[in-house]
Computed example of a mutant assay.
Amino acid sequence: MIRHTVSFALVHAEGSAEEAAFLARGREVLTGVPGVEDFQVSRQVSPKSLHRFQFAMTFADETAYRAYDAHPAHRDFVASSWEPEVADFQELDLVPLS
């Protein structure tokens, strides 16, 4: 199991229609990619981070994660939405300790 998370800050003003559209588009596109499980969008409530949001999802294994990463819908979202609209981000790919 891999838990893929990415926290991020957008170029859009807080509470703007553009911010809401980005988050909705991310949810719609990424949940449609095969292998994505337990997708969540979260909002940061601590002032300790400039990243206001997080996308998190789970993959059954490395094969599912690689298929997601290479999927055309994911690649298109990154190119058309993520790259122009995300100001900064931090990605973590985590596996449980046994």
Rank of each mutant, 00 (worst) to 15 (best):
A20K: 05
D93F: 12
G35I: 15
E83V: 13
S98F: 11
L97K: 03
F59N: 06
V45Y: 14
P96K: 10
W82V: 03
L10F: 09
L23H: 02
A73W: 08
E18N: 08
W82H: 02
H12L: 06
L23K: 07
F77Y: 11
F39I: 03
K48G: 12
V41T: 09
G35H: 14
F55I: 00
L94V: 00
A73L: 10
F55A: 00
A67M: 06
V36I: 07
E18Q: 08
V11M: 09
A60N: 12
L10R: 01
R43E: 13
L92V: 08
V36N: 06
H71D: 09
F77L: 00
F8R: 05
P34L: 07
S98M: 05
S46F: 08
Q54R: 06
I2P: 00
Q44A: 07
F39K: 07
Q90I: 03
F59W: 06
A9T: 08
Y65A: 06
R25G: 05
V11F: 03
F59E: 09
A21F: 05
P84Y: 04
V41P: 02
F53N: 02
S16M: 10
G15I: 02
S98D: 10
S49E: 13
L23Y: 05
E91M: 04
V95T: 12
A56D: 02
Y68C: 14
F77M: 04
F39L: 13
F53R: 00
D93R: 10
K48Y: 10
Q44V: 08
V78C: 02
G15D: 07
Q44N: 15
A70E: 14
E62H: 12
T63W: 01
M57R: 09
E83W: 13
T5M: 09
S46P: 06
L97T: 05
V33P: 00
A24K: 14
